[in-house]
Amino acid sequence: MSNHTFRPFLDAFLTAWKCSSLMELEHFISKDYQARGVSIENLKVQHEQPL
Rank of each mutant, 00 (worst) to 15 (best):
H27V: 09
L10Y: 01
A35V: 07
T15G: 06
A16I: 01
H47D: 09
K31Y: 06
S21D: 14
P50Y: 13
F6P: 00
M1I: 07
S2G: 15
M1E: 05
D32A: 08
D32H: 15
S20G: 08
S21R: 06
Y33S: 07
Q49E: 11
H47N: 11
Q46A: 10
H4D: 09
E48L: 13
S30D: 15
S20I: 03
S20P: 01
Q49F: 11
A16H: 06
D11E: 15
E41P: 00
V45W: 07
L10M: 03
K44E: 05
I29L: 15
L14T: 10
M23G: 12
V38T: 05
H4I: 01
F6M: 02
H47A: 13
A12P: 02
H4Y: 08
H47R: 11
E41Y: 13
H4A: 15
F13Y: 13
W17K: 00
S2Y: 00
F9N: 03
K18L: 05
V38L: 14
L10G: 00
I29D: 07
K31T: 07
L43K: 03
R36D: 06
G37L: 13
Q46F: 09
F13L: 10
S30T: 08
W17R: 01
E41D: 12
L43T: 10
Q46N: 11
L51P: 10
S2P: 08
K18H: 14
K44N: 13
L43E: 04
P50N: 08
K44L: 15
M23T: 15
A12S: 13
S30P: 04
E48T: 10
E24I: 00
S30Y: 09
D32G: 03
S39E: 10
W17Y: 05
T5L: 00
F9W: 07
Q34V: 15
I40E: 11
L22R: 10
K44V: 15
V45F: 06
Q49M: 10
A35F: 08
P8A: 03
K31Q: 09
S39V: 11
P50I: 13
A35C: 13
N3I: 14
V45A: 07
S21Y: 13
Q34S: 12
C19F: 06
L43G: 01
I40N: 04
S20L: 04
G37Y: 01
